[in-house]
Design a binder for these strands. Structure first.
Lengths: 219, 219
DNA sequence: GTCTATACAATGATAGAC
DNA sequence: GTCTATCATTGTATAGAC
């Protein structure tokens, strides 16, 4: 397990304790498999994906893929673990010392940027959670819950200081998550309804979210 | 095909033209299968679901299920078609003559209510769209697009009349869809993070959305 | 480390008795 | 209309040659 990988069990294990030294070729091929698996799992979900598809996408044989990861489950867990980092990082940046509305808008903007830059990651989680979050439930209940609780306290403090409209902090976070991830998760629907060019679409999205957020949150 | 069912091809076909007369028992069993299929497909997606699971849930044998619907695809299409109606109706209610913010809030409230009352339907679509909307793409590009375009014009008129903040109408609709459906689609995540009782949770959701919408949209 | 071949289970769909 | 039995296919995983 790589050092920057998230522990899906929620336990406090020593990072890298069980992994032997890996050769360059191993590192390269595992990375290729994980990249391919992100592609496949994010569009088809866990059960809808086959090891064959992943192997094809990675340009390897099925048997070879299963040499690096013993089971399909293992591949899936690896992809989730490595992608969770991207998803978690921006919220951690929310700074209690900064200007409240500015901080929240910066966070929203970053999530919007991620939805555009890493839509696969977004869809991977959407799929996982839609199926009941069987693999990442421990992560949600431990690491994510702990982080979100801390950030909710910051937001609540801002509200108590009269710097922010009296929203429910947790639901404000849900609103930011949903409205930004929507652009990745529901892309086919958005493309069916939108007539503007790509860049205009995203400009309008950003402008509308900014307007709604800044006005809605003003004390 | 039932009369209140949505045509997934987007063509203008004569309703019921190809269906023979159905006996009571047929109607009852088809309904049972569709209800069971909604359960199964919405939690596992199309490929993740098996005809066996559907048969079990419906309390029938697999062979008997496949007597009523020849293929798994047919079951899926039937469930989607019957559920789309629920999803479409509320937007159609948006009234150009009413008070803009009140109308938009009523619509949001109705969507929130649906997310709570019919979370399966929400997840069924989320799954379908995540996989690229293979079945309902024609519907999105025709019926839905036509409806959304009309409603966007109403919203734009409101803005032009100075009754509403200058948002991009399409993106306002996306915001309403995403923030309300989130409570159905991401339920496992919400349950992992929320500590309040069910009814408090939904009260807070409604209160926060109302505050953000009404303040955000005020001209 | 990588490939071919294959075992074994799950699943969609059909045939035919009742 | 409903059931049991069965087939064909696909998909996960392993064995063993190279």
């Amino acid at each position: 397990m790589a050092d920057d990988e998230i522990n899906l069990n929620g336990d406090a294990t020593v990072s890298g304790s069980s992994s032997r030294k890996r050769t360059r070729i191993q590192i390269r091929n595992e990375a290729r498999i994980v990249r391919a698996a992100l592609d496949v799992f994010s569009s088809n979900g866990y059960r809808g994906s086959t090891v064959d598809q992943i192997a094809d996408t990675a340009g390897m044989s099925k048997a070879n893929v299963l040499y690096y990861f013993n089971t399909k489950q293992d591949i899936y867990a690896a992809v989730l673990a490595r992608t969770l980092t991207i998803w978690l990082d921006p919220l951690a940046e929310l700074d209690a010392e900064g200007d409240p509305i500015e901080e929240l808008w910066k966070y929203t903007q970053e999530k919007l940027r991620l939805s555009r830059k890493a839509p696969h990651a977004s869809r991977l989680f959407a799929n996982e959670i839609l199926q009941g979050a069987p693999v990442i439930k421990p992560f949600l209940e431990n690491q994510l819950k702990s982080l979100v609780t801390r950030k909710c306290q910051i937001i609540q403090t801002w509200i108590d200081q009269g710097k922010l409209a009296p929203v429910a902090p947790l639901h404000l976070i849900f609103l930011i998550w949903s409205s930004t991830q929507h652009y990745a998760d529901f892309a086919p629907q958005i493309n069916a309804l939108n007539t503007e060019p790509e860049d205009v679409l995203h400009e309008q999205a950003e402008q509308t979210l900014k307007l709604m957020l800044t006005r809605g949150l003003a004390p």
